[in-house]
């Protein structure tokens, strides 16, 4: 499944989608950034509620396919612009982290 495909699912809305054709392979859920850096794999969808500028740095360094902000969390304008510039896909999900992961699991 690509990030574009994910955005077609109800409840998932793109905030930035500079590289929507990236393929998603696996999921990592976490809010502690160093844990994410230690554990998330390249091409994972990363589900979190952290939406500050450091989230973008971690997403870029771990090379995840996209960041999914659970519970309807969104980005401040400044962070959104930075995500666009850094080429990071950020999607907001209306669901909890658990339900978001379940939907991804079924869709893959």
């Amino acid at each position: 499944m690509t990030v574009n495909d994910l955005c077609n699912i109800e409840g998932f809305n793109p905030l930035t989608l500079p590289e929507g054709d990236r393929e998603i392979s696996g999921v990592y859920i976490g809010d502690l950034l160093s844990w994410v850096m230690g554990k998330a794999r390249s091409d994972n969808a990363w589900i979190t509620i952290m939406s500050n500028i450091n989230t973008l740095a971690v997403a870029s360094l771990t090379d995840v396919a996209c960041v999914i902000l659970a519970e309807g969390v969104t980005l401040e304008e400044e962070v959104k612009n930075a995500a666009e510039n850094k080429g990071i896909n950020v999607i907001t999900s209306a669901y909890s982290a658990y339900d978001t992961a379940l939907i991804l699991s079924k869709a893959q």
């Binding site: 809010d31 502690l32 950034l33 160093s34 844990w35 850096m37 230690g38 952290m50 450091n54």
Partner: peptide, 9 residues
């Protein structure tokens, strides 16, 4: 609160 300080650095 920024997501750091987990003692994993």
């Amino acid at each position: 609160t920024l997501g750091f300080g987990a003692g994993m650095g």
